[in-house]
Design a protein around this nucleic acid. Structure first.
Length: 482
RNA sequence: GGCGCCAUCGUCUAGUGGUUAGGACGCCGGCCUCUCAAGCCGGUAACACGGGUUCGAUCCCCGUUGGCGCUACCA
């Protein structure tokens, strides 16, 4: 009998949601959904200097955009709240005082300067910098004396004289020597908890069963493990996921392609594609499937198939995944995602033809930021001919064709659909001895101003007779002038 | 510096004590085609190095090298 799964994603609101964080959030969410468990969002804002409401808002917004909905946390509540650490200071203080009363922690009056000096000396001597224990055995009267001097103490946990073993679901057994661990601070002199302390208290109180987080927290786990036993709480299972690095193996932060969700959103990646790609970074489908829907991922996700080695972010593959999602997602979803890109480029996305235009151009799209360029020929605004298109129009053989074409298209009874367009084009072409490329390319150039694009018949149908005729006329005029 | 994690094609990865080391992206070529994409077919390319253990190591152990992380009253 196993406990129902409860996992959490616990970002610090100190910036945008980074890709590594996004993947950590995703793995937690996938695990929770796969196991039918609970996904909790907790905001770790104990660093009051760096945390901002704006940042928290952006991170929550990014998570929502990805579709990673949380069952407990900011905005939705839950019975284990509050879910912002800044609102839980009383809880941490109580726990620290309990440890103090039990003799498992002690107050420390050492100054920053003393601490810095000790650290420096230890490092110079090749030792692990750790607390020298100066305040460990202070008497009651000594402590009172320091208080009277106005020193605000920190609270330190008494470290044990024993090695610590961490059992990790992804990395196996990891041992840390006792010399690695000093009496570390759990409560700052201003009463705020330190990261390790707040995390353990919260994870324990919130009933977290699995801590899935990035590898950079592995060394912290040693301290947290100790905290669990000192506090008398049962520790959760740990799973440390690798970090994401840039193509050159350096940190993802500054170099390389897209590093933040914001950037990916701006470049026109679909949330489903981002999730799909992120999941593939460090996890693999048992049947090696690569294009997976949200439901596919939830169904197949398994911590056992998560890789232990760092993965490099690859723009090309993300684009490939996105291309698939762009082509295979329901049109309504793609259209909705495409609208902002069209609108910001000045194109009318309320045009009745818009969904059909998107449907047509999405075949050749790998990111929505390229959408404006692809849909431009369907609108009258800024319609212009590329140099290569002009060449096709001014070819001797095609020159004479446009006026005839304009008349022929204008004479078509009823709607000018793709089939009708093609049959008219072909019959007009054959009258002039033109067919195939020699026929279609000039026509394409005249109608779209481009030499590349979707099937010309479909393009013409969406353009509508009026535009087709007027562009043929314009081409006839251009050809004449040349 | 100390401690820890990691190491299969350029990249993401599968995999096993005995395999022609598999797939995907990219790249190259072909097919399709009015073009570009897409799609389909084919090609390219890897077990970091050195010791062990073993009849046999990509796989297990040790070391080296390299990458990354941690080393705070940051998270």
């Amino acid at each position: 009998m196993t406990k129902p799964v409860r996992v959490r994603f616990a970002p610090s609101p100190t910036g945008h949601l980074h890709l590594g964080n996004a993947r950590t959030a995703l793995f937690n969410w996938l695990f929770a959904r796969h196991e039918g468990g609970t996904f909790i969002l907790r905001v770790e804002d104990t660093d009051t200097a760096r945390s901002t409401d704006e940042s928290e808002r952006m991170i929550l917004d990014d998570l929502k955009w990805l579709g990673l909905d949380w069952d407990e946390g900011p905005g939705v509540g839950g019975e284990f709240g509050p879910y912002r650490q800044s609102e839980r200071t009383g809880i941490y203080r109580e726990h620290a005082e309990r440890l103090l009363a039990d003799g498992k922690a002690f107050t420390c009056y050492c100054s920053d300067e003393t601490l810095d000096e000790n650290r420096k000396r230890a490092r110079d001597e090749g030792r692990v910098p750790q607390y020298d224990g100066a305040c460990r055995h202070l008497s009651e009267s000594e402590r009172r004396a320091r208080e009277l001097d106005g020193v605000r103490p920190t609270i330190r946990l008494r470290a044990p004289d024993a090695d610590i073993v961490v059992e990790d679901m992804i990395r196996g057994r990891v041992e840390f020597g006792k010399e690695m661990l000093g009496d570390f601070i759990i409560l700052r002199s201003d009463g705020r908890p330190t990261y390790n302390f707040a995390v353990v208290v919260d994870d324990a109180l919130m009933g977290i069963t699995h801590v899935i987080r990035a590898e950079d927290h592995l060394p912290n786990t040693m301290r947290q493990q100790l905290l669990y036993s000192r506090l008398g709480y049962e520790p959760p299972l740990f799973a440390h996921v690798s970090l994401i690095v840039a193509q050159d193996r350096s940190k993802l932060s500054k170099r390389g392609g897209a590093t933040s969700l914001q950037k990916l959103r701006r470049e026109g990646f679909l949330p489903g594609a981002v999730i799909n790609y992120l999941a593939l970074l460090g996890w693999s489908h048992p049947e090696a499937k690569e294009i997976l829907s949200r439901e596919d991922l939830v169904g197949a996700f398994d911590l056992k198939r998560v890789s232990a080695s760092a993965a490099a972010f690859d723009d090309d593959k993300l684009e490939w995944v996105n291309g698939h999602h762009l082509r295979e997602s329901p049109l309504s979803i793609v259209v909705a995602a495409a609208k902002p890109f069209a609108v910001s480029a000045g194109f009318d996305s309320d045009d009745a033809r818009f969904p059909a235009i998107v449907d047509l151009v999405r075949e050749g799209l790998d990111r929505l930021s390229n959408l404006p360029g692809e849909i431009a020929p369907f609108y009258d605004r800024d319609f212009d001919l590329e140099p290569e298109a002009k060449e096709w129009i001014s070819l001797h053989e095609s020159r004479q064709m446009f006026a005839a074409l304009a008349d022929a298209f204008a004479a078509v009874p009823g709607k000018l659909d793709a089939a009708e367009f093609k049959s008219v084009l072909k019959s007009q072409g054959s009258a002039l001895g033109l067919k195939g490329k020699a026929l279609f390319m000039p026509a394409r150039a005249a109608l779209t101003g481009r030499t590349h694009g979707p099937a010309l018949g479909s393009v013409a149908e969406l353009l509508g007779r009026e535009r087709v005729v007027s562009r043929c006329l314009a081409a006839a005029g251009d050809a004449e002038r040349q």
